[in-house]
Design a protein around this nucleic acid. Structure first.
Length: 137
DNA sequence: GCCAACGTTGGC
DNA sequence: GCCAACGTTGGC
């Protein structure tokens, strides 16, 4: 069971947009980076991921669930790119900000901190548990 | 809006 | 296969 973190700019596609999709969820399309794509290819149905708002907010706002493994990205004909499907599972009671993450012992090694440009990244089980607690879950 | 970090592209 | 030029991301 692996854990993940995916980023999106909330003014383009934010947590409320995913919530609005309900149980059917949404394709995480538009990723055009090999490392990010490879992480999506490693995802299994039922695995959980944080939804991070980049640029605006800069905080983790909720938990998503993988509901389909990686399949061709419908927004391009380029066969190199594919993506998973996700649904919103549970909103954080309060967002966990990037500044807070950077200031929390145990989280300084997160990919989010070390490689801020990677939009789909793994999260360790320890990081997952700690952040869930910080988010009020 | 700026710019550092990083990834990609393309000439050689 | 190297590397300079360029484009993009995302924090500040």
């Amino acid at each position: 069971m692996a854990f993940w973190l995916l980023k999106s700019e909330p003014d383009v596609f934010g947590w409320p947009h995913l919530v609005a999709k309900g149980e059917a969820g949404e394709e995480w399309s538009g990723v055009r980076n090999y490392q990010a794509r490879n992480n999506m290819r490693a995802m299994q149905v039922g695995e959980l991921a944080f939804f991070y708002h980049s640029n605006i907010g800069k905080e983790i706002v909720g938990v998503m669930e993988v509901i389909r493994t990686s399949a061709p990205d419908s927004t391009t004909d380029d066969p190199r790119w594919d993506c998973v499907m996700l649904r919103a599972k549970q909103a954080f009671k309060r967002g966990v900000g990037l500044d807070e993450i950077k200031a929390t012992p145990g989280l300084e090694g997160m990919v989010l901190v070390k490689n801020s440009r990677l939009s789909v990244q793994p999260v360790t089980a320890d990081e997952w548990a700690l952040i869930c607690r910080m988010g009020g879950l």
